[in-house]
Design a binder for these strands. Structure first.
Lengths: 343, 343
DNA sequence: TTCTCTACTGTGAACGCTCACAGAAGCATG
DNA sequence: CATGCTTCTGTGAGCGTTCACAGTAGAGAA
């Protein structure tokens, strides 16, 4: 119908052109391209020179057609979309994964599975083999997409321990429980005794583990667990604000709040300010993540740093290993207490 | 060496399998797949049934090999990477583009060109024809990547008017000048007369235009332009904070600040708070973007809304049209004044 | 009837690459 | 001299599609 490529792109050189230019055969060029074993130094040099001269770039479609690999990776987000907007962690993760893959010359396909339709479309796309593996961000339990991909045998690495996918799925996570323990111990060291907590969603391992760390430390220190001091949120700023208001109503005597994410902690700060409690004088507030929200908050948040740069790098490493035939594995990375103004 | 695909993925059905199942030829199946012209209802029905039965999904690599199209689009970010972290606008844009493309069943490849190496790698990748077109986010002038892509005739749509790429490149932008005018007029309507401004980078059209809008309105109202009331930032929160401090030092009598981005406005609020100025009583603050930062700020920001959802949708529309052979075009979308607590 | 036109269908070739195989050359060993 | 081994190279086949072309069947017109 219409003339394509108005700009006038010319036909790119093929492996054949390079072969002719270098005075060798296609096979030799291909060998130079992939590994370079069993090829003489002279031939290799000639081929490389020809590649430079012609400006040859391999046609990945042709390669994929025969190898069966796509040499690309999907970054799949099955969280509700609002979180993607709001949560600075996703940015960091996405960037880290993109860069780690770039080092292997592997493009990243961004896939957002918000609606049911999108879910189906993406599942088909992936199981059809259009990506070699999937980096999954979805902490919610019983994710049907993840389930299907697992069953279809698609290499998969989750960010955070997935629930209900059996033990055969790889994941990379921060040491949530340890991090929570560090924070609660720190709050105790400040002399706080009525420490409230705003948990993450309790159908996610992150949410569960951080609460578990809190309870462990309390038990170890002989402090009674008071469930009026515990409310749960969904990692959003709004849920932090609402949670803090519930806490203030239930336990006006609280002197610290451990919040399971920095974004929620922002909301907590807002609620405390409105209630006339000053931070950190009246109430100490501890966050979790060390996302950019921690620096944006007023006062800046004392928080538990999740090493997102390392997490993304590990996710990519584990996924590529798995695509290469290795068994699934789990990686837990240590967290770090970062002290700032809020506690 | 190693056995690939431990999970045991089976070979997916091909067009041949579908043809056999439906009792027709490859050609007919292909015709049903692409448009469906010149194919009898009976055959079409049989083919569709066979597709459903076999679970057939087209092999895009094989298709691309022959059509020359890749049926994928690159989302290219050449901004310094920190902005990508911090700025909530990117998220919205990225999400919007991904979804708009998903509606056309076109995957989005995320490309971050931070370092010089990455720039080269990505340029080669794109000019080699591995994507059909590029959605470009890079407002900085003289972007070498954009330049090269343009010259190579790669279909390209920029977010915001690009500088120095000639008039033959498509772009989608908000009406920056109008938006700035609306905000300044609104601040005047509040009785403010000493209106300071924190501009964006002045090597970007956005930065220039928003400042121009400010000056226009001042001139129209017969208010003298005072360049001590003008400082420029780089859209980051930190630069907003620093800018406000300079302004307060230079012009302690300022009674309003028009800030060229919400993120910078957050920094401005911080600096004003530290200086003991209350917002909006002592000083009115107006932002720009209506990003999530506007809601996160305290008080919430009165701002100029950029319709990012429409911008991303238009970017995709224009790009696809251009790939289809149409000429480059520019789209300017209207902004909207959103009143909240800060002014 | 015969011819033409339209609506539809099948077939071979090609896209650019990798892979398996065959073969050539060089060198050491029997 | 034959044999085997290692290192290197070229060649044909095939990956799963689309595209151009040829061909068939049926309807309508001459």
């Amino acid at each position: 119908m219409t003339m394509s490529n108005t700009g006038g792109r010319r036909k790119p050189p093929t492996i054949h052109d390079v072969a002719r230019e270098a005075g060798v055969s296609r096979g030799t060029v291909s060998r130079v391209l992939n590994g370079g074993h069993y090829v003489s130094p002279t031939a290799a040099e000639a081929v490389n020179a020809a590649i430079r001269k012609t400006g040859y770039v391999v046609n990945r479609h042709a390669r994929s057609l025969i190898t069966g690999r796509s040499d690309s990776i999907g970054f799949l987000l099955t969280e509700p979309q609002e979180r993607f907007f709001e949560d600075p962690n996703f940015n960091v993760l996405l960037r880290g994964c993109t860069q780690a893959l770039a080092a292997h010359d592997i493009p990243l396909l961004l896939m957002l599975a918000g609606t049911e339709d999108e879910r189906r479309r993406i599942t088909r796309y992936i199981t059809a083999g259009h990506v070699d593996g999937v980096l999954l961000v979805s902490s919610h339990s019983g994710d049907p997409v993840a389930q299907e991909l697992c069953e279809a045998g698609v290499p998969l690495v989750a960010c955070g321990k997935p629930i209900g996918l059996g033990s055969k799925v790889s994941y990379v996570a921060a040491a949530d429980r340890d991090g929570a323990r560090d924070m609660v111990r720190y709050l105790l060291s400040l002399g706080r005794r009525r420490i409230a907590v705003v948990t993450g969603p309790l159908d996610t391992p992150g949410g569960v583990e951080r609460l578990a760390g809190y309870r462990e430390v309390l038990a170890e220190e002989g402090i009674e667990y008071d469930d009026r001091l515990v409310v749960s949120g969904d990692y959003s700023r709004a849920s932090g604000e609402a949670g803090a208001e519930r806490l203030l109503a239930q336990c006006p005597d609280l002197d610290a709040v451990f919040v399971a994410s920095d974004l929620m902690a922002q909301g907590v700060l807002t609620a405390l300010e409105r209630a006339g409690r000053s931070v950190p004088q009246d109430v100490s507030v501890g966050g979790f993540d060390d996302s950019s929200a921690a620096l944006a908050a007023r006062p800046q948040l004392t928080t538990i740093r999740q090493p997102y740069d390392r997490i993304s790098a590990e996710m990519v490493r584990v996924l590529l290993a798995q695509i290469g035939g290795e068994d699934p594995s789990a990686v837990i990375l240590p967290t770090e207490l970062i002290k700032r103004g809020s506690a």
